[in-house]
Nucleic acid binder design. Structure first.
Length: 766
DNA sequence: TATATAGTGTTTTTT
DNA sequence: ACACTATATA
């Protein structure tokens, strides 16, 4: 492609960003301003116009999905050599480097990658071993401290110096022990992947030099989310040629809890005084109304790089606000609305996204989606690879691949049940410890371990022999074949089959899926290896497997939604205490924490292209108890004239429900309150803060009229045959009072047993 | 050693 | 509400 073609479809700022190839460049790219487009065109410009060798260009993203997308877009506009461009995530790039030079820093190329579960298991072991009381400090909290230390490139010794108090000293001790155990197991956690690469570069300048020479042009996406370690990594890489281009938006920095250091972007011009700064402020995604609402929210933050997005897009409809009595009705409204619009063919399912603050909120929506028969996909939550059966099988593969990974060996030594209990495992672990060998090696010498009876020795040897056979066969065998041998040899599936429960069937399904993932890996990897497969599995995120061609409503957290866009967006749970989270409100530095939440809200709003609806519940079930909450301050920050609050907006004195319809309606009072609120120039919901003092505003669900009885008794009983729109005819098995509505269990011959709410499912007696 | 039961604590977000 | 842990029991 020629220069003219590359620049043709770009605005002048975008062109500037594309052409600024030499030296440090900071691209401040607002939401929806076409930053991926700029990066892709920049790569094309480097190759096709400047003649830069594709192999010397490196683009770093945060998710595999973003990397895939960029790779394919580069592929479509760059003539040749696009395959040589390096597009990678921080983590996978570091793994690649580390595998090659692992021996220089005391690891082997087969090192394992520990996920959060592995870390927790390891920490629990350490607590036990060191006699640390889990009531005094929690394992997770210690891991969080260690993780932030690693993000900041602080090792155990430095941590000890920095935290002189007793807790600090104790954590430092655990940190040290934790690192030792990882090293002994030839394993690294997520943070180590970056940290160890930095160490490698710093201790071995000759290695750094190799990569500095290879990557002459660096680009970093989502720069606002980099942490100190990642910053150091990038600085080292770019240290020689200084062609570093970072792209980011300080208003979208939402990963502080993961160590993201907003100073990396805010202070870029201080660190690189000669940096060229380009601002992309034209938005191509959202309507003016949506963009204005987003701006009104984000402008409440201090210390941001001031900028205001604009768009040539239509004004669009107002942002809608709908309030409900509880989360249940909220979910019913959203799902019902989507269902009606999909039926009317206004939109396809994939045009919708439901965004929320916490994963726990997904359950309510999932139930309603099932009842409404809408295809959906929940992103995040429990990862496929963290299911027990999948982890068990992977532990076998890891033990075969990396024999010194004690954690995995200990996990599977009694899976399936071989009659090896805690006592035996303890004795093997002791023996391993005193002999300075790995757990698995110790198990291989079971007959020499004091305290093990002949029965125990026999059982342990059975296990080690099994692994031995698998390992001997693994050489040159396909990964899927190894996996199948494990499944057969352990009798895992057989055991599950015997259970004859739906749960077990699911697990078997997951095992099949794991095997097919292995097959897929063998097909797409250039040089498939067992380590390679395990690494891919460890670094994959749920979001990476999103397929934008499949027609489903997407449900995910606001965090997961970053980088995506949808025609119709619902932001659910807009309540104080939930969003912004109670954690942030009660933090020791609430201002800062709430600003982070506000950025998250900004990210959510700017995901919407055509339509945005915010919803909230006045009552919500939060860890087992019902909590009452006020409308989120973020909603209240949007001026009234930008918000459509629905046509049944009413205000009621606290503790009393207004009669709005029919004879004797409290019309005068309603008008008085409304009029007063509006003449005062404040949005009615702005006074929501007065809860309990005077009166609160109330937006009644148009879906369920105020005062309507929540449920009507079904006209059928147990044993009757009923008809469902989708499932056809079935026999009623059970009717239960489900609070808001009657919960009916029906056996449909063609679909199996389903539970549903009577009036919502519109069951009819036949 | 394996299993059933009661009791305990937890939740923000994730590569 | 739920998952995880400690304890009692077979």
């Amino acid at each position: 492609m020629e220069e003219r073609d590359i620049m043709e479809k770009l605005n002048s700022e975008q062109q500037k960003a594309v052409a600024a190839t030499e030296g440090p460049v900071l691209i401040l790219a607002g939401a929806g301003s076409g930053k991926t487009r700029v990066l892709v065109h920049r790569i094309a410009y480097l190759i096709d116009v400047l003649g830069v060798s594709p192999g010397s260009i490196l683009a770093i993203t945060f998710t595999n999905k973003a990397a895939d997308e960029m790779r394919s877009r580069v592929d479509s506009i760059v003539g040749f050599g696009s395959k040589e461009v390096w597009v990678s995530t921080f983590h996978s790039l570091c793994v690649r480097i580390l595998r090659r030079y692992a021996d220089l820093i005391g690891y082997t190329r087969y090192f394992s990658i520990y996920d959060t579960d592995d870390q927790l298991t390891l920490m629990k072991n350490l607590f036990k071993q060191r006699g640390t009381d889990p009531k005094r400090m929690r394992e997770k909290a210690v891991l969080a401290r260690i993780s932030s230390a690693k993000d900041e490139l602080i090792g155990p010794a430095k941590y000890r110096e920095l935290n002189r108090d007793q807790f600090g000293q104790e954590i430092a001790g655990l940190y040290e022990a934790y690192n030792t155990r990882l090293k002994e197991s030839n394993a690294m956690d997520f943070d180590d992947l970056i940290l160890k690469t930095v160490e490698l570069f710093e201790q071995h300048p000759e290695v750094l030099d190799v990569y500095q020479e290879r990557f002459r042009y660096l680009m970093v996406d989502e720069y606002q989310d980099t942490n100190t370690a990642q910053f150091r990594f990038v600085s080292l890489l770019a240290g020689k040629y200084r062609n570093l281009c970072v792209v980011g938006d300080d208003d979208q920095s939402i990963y502080k809890f993961r160590g993201a250091n907003i100073r990396n972007i805010l202070g870029f011009e201080t660190i690189f005084p000669d940096a060229e700064v380009v601002r992309l402020e034209q938005n191509y995604r959202s309507t003016q109304n949506i963009l204005n609402a987003a701006y009104e929210v984000i402008r409440h933050n201090h210390g941001r790089k001031s900028k205001k997005l604009w768009t040539e897009n239509p004004v669009g409809t107002k942002v809608r606000l709908r309030r409900f009595a509880n989360g249940f009705e909220e979910a019913e409204f959203i799902c019902g609305e989507i269902m009606r619009e999909v039926r009317a063919h206004t939109h396809a399912c994939k045009d919708y996204a439901i965004l929320y603050r916490t994963n726990a909120q997904s359950r309510l929506f999932e139930e309603k989606m099932l009842m409404a028969n809408l295809p959906y996909r929940i992103v995040g939550g429990i990862n496929f690879y963290s299911r027990k059966e999948v982890k068990d099988l992977l532990a076998y593969l890891k033990t075969i691949d990396n024999a010194v990974d004690d954690l995995q060996a200990m996990r599977i030594i009694n899976i399936p049940k071989r009659g090896i209990g805690a006592a035996t495992i303890g004795r093997i672990a002791n023996y391993a410890e005193s002999g300075g060998i790995s757990f698995f090696e110790a198990a291989c010498e079971a007959d020499r371990i004091p305290g093990l009876g002949s029965a125990a020795v026999r059982k342990v040897t059975g296990f080690t022999d099994f692994i031995g056979v698998l390992r001997a066969r693994a050489e040159g065998q396909k990964i899927s074949e190894i996996l199948k041998s494990v499944v057969e040899g352990t009798g895992y599936v057989e055991e599950l089959r015997k259970e004859e429960t739906e749960e077990a069937e699911n697990r078997i399904g997951n095992i099949d899926e794991l095997i097919s993932k292995a097959v897929q890996y063998e097909e797409h990897a250039s040089e498939p290896t067992l380590s390679g497969f395990l690494e891919e599995v460890a670094l994959i995120a749920d979001i990476d497997s999103l397929d934008d061609t499949d027609d489903r409503v997407l449900l995910m957290t606001l965090h997961s939604a970053k980088g995506l866009e949808f025609p119709v967006v619902y932001m659910a749970g807009m309540e104080e205490g939930l969003f912004p989270s109670g954690m942030s409100i009660n933090a020791f530095n609430p201002e800062e924490e709430i600003e982070e939440e506000r950025r998250l809200c900004y990210v959510g709003i700017t995901r919407a292209k055509e339509s945005l609806t915010m919803t909230s519940a006045r009552e919500r079930m939060l860890r087992g108890e019902i909590t009452e909450s006020r409308l989120s301050r973020f909603v209240r920050e949007i001026p009234r004239e930008l918000v459509d609050v629905g046509d049944e907006e009413v205000l009621r004195p606290a503790g009393r429900t207004l009669n709005l319809t029919g004879r004797g309606a409290d019309g005068a009072m309603r008008n008085a309150i409304l009029g007063k609120a509006e003449s005062a120039g404040r949005p009615p919901y702005d006074r929501d803060g007065d809860r309990g003092t005077i009166r609160e505003s109330l937006y009644v669900s148009p879906y369920k009229k105020a005062g309507t009885p929540g449920k009507t008794e079904p006209d059928f009983g147990v044993g009757d045959t009923v008809r469902h729109v989708k499932f056809g005819d079935g026999v009623v098995k059970e009717i239960k009072d489900g609070g808001k509505d009657y919960l009916v269990t029906v056996d449909f011959p063609a679909w199996g047993i389903k539970k549903m709410y009577a009036s919502f499912a519109k069951l009819k007696r036949v």
